[in-house]
């Protein structure tokens, strides 16, 4: 009758049921008001802020026995943050885990959206450090709340304009502000702006959790997500002259890897599952 082998003495998915209920009610309001930051009673998690406590609380409130969980950190399934969060949920829920994007029903991510297009009934949970896109401009929460209420977003464009004045182009390359459903300006979390277009009209549900700041927000499927820009400086994503040194991909987000102390460097896919899948397919053909 109870869930399979999980650590004794803990509730399913760590959080107590009343906390889950509170987060669940916040999530329903978040999807009803796309891009709006819902305050919630963030709990202490058994790891420090900045390691994804917000994302973990959202995941813990929604995860169930039938889920298949994937966790990525900067696109990789095998880095410290991803491995430990995956182990945490395997320990405390006993759910299946995977590294394959298309098999996962629930993907918790730190700072990337998988390259493989997401499909309906998948849920992407983002770990968010600073949920308020206006915070760097206006430190007061009372003021930023008012700015959101009045749709007073001119200052956001000034920030982007200052980039153009200084560098000749919009130099903001991650946490690039977006407007959701033509209303709220939202921080997409520090994903590279390369990933911003994937958020627009995505068939998957996107949920955002900020543990330290205690905010939850959401983008329902098939919702317009527009990156802010100017008519004469339209939004652009990063491009590379190189391809991935492992799989040869030209369409994925590349990480620069330093090879020696002589300035040698190369580029590889940041999304390890995408890279591995491509490589396996090439070997099959050969």
């Amino acid at each position: 009758m109870s869930a399979p082998a999980t650590r004794a003495g803990y509730n399913f998915a760590y959080l107590d049921e009343q906390t889950k209920g509170m987060i669940r009610r916040a999530l329903l309001k978040a999807v009803a008001i796309p891009g709006y930051q819902v305050p919630f009673g963030g709990r202490e998690m058994p790891m420090p802020y900045g390691w994804g406590t917000g994302g973990m609380q959202v995941s813990a409130a929604i995860i169930g026995r039938d889920d298949c969980l994937k966790v990525i950190d900067q696109g990789a399934d095998d880095t410290t943050n991803a491995v430990s969060i995956r182990a945490f949920f395997r320990d405390l829920t006993g759910v299946a885990t995977t590294e394959r994007t298309e098999q996962a029903t629930l993907i918790q991510t730190r700072h990337r959206i998988p390259e493989t297009p997401l499909h309906e009934d998948q849920i992407l949970v983002y770990q968010v450090p600073i949920p308020e896109p206006l915070r760097f401009i206006e430190p007061s929460e009372v003021e930023t709340r008012k700015m959101h209420a009045l749709e007073d977003y001119g200052v956001m464009h000034i920030k982007l304009y200052e980039d153009i004045a200084q560098f000749g182009h919009i130099a903001t390359s991650y946490a690039y502000p977006v407007r959701v459903n033509g209303r709220y300006v939202m921080d997409p979390s520090p994903i590279p702006k390369f990933d911003n277009p994937k958020m627009d009209h995505s068939p998957a549900l996107q949920l955002f959790g900020a543990g330290r700041e205690k905010r939850i927000y959401a983008v329902p499927p098939y919702t317009e997500v527009r990156s802010l820009d100017f008519a004469d400086h339209p939004f652009e994503v990063q491009r590379w002259d190189q391809c991935c040194a492992i799989c040869g991909a030209t369409d994925s987000f590349l990480d620069e890897v330093i090879l020696d102390d002589q300035g040698g460097h190369t580029f590889i896919c940041s999304d390890t599952d995408y890279c591995r899948t491509r490589l396996a397919r090439q070997e099959e053909k050969a």
């Binding site: 509730n11 329903l28 999807v31 929604i62 169930g64």
Partner: peptide
């Protein structure tokens, strides 16, 4: 019958219908 599991399942249906 199983409060933890049943409320989780019910919530996922509520989340699905509210987001779509």
């Amino acid at each position: 019958a199983n409060p933890v599991e049943d409320s989780q399942q019910a919530f996922r249906h509520l989340l699905k219908v509210m987001s779509e």
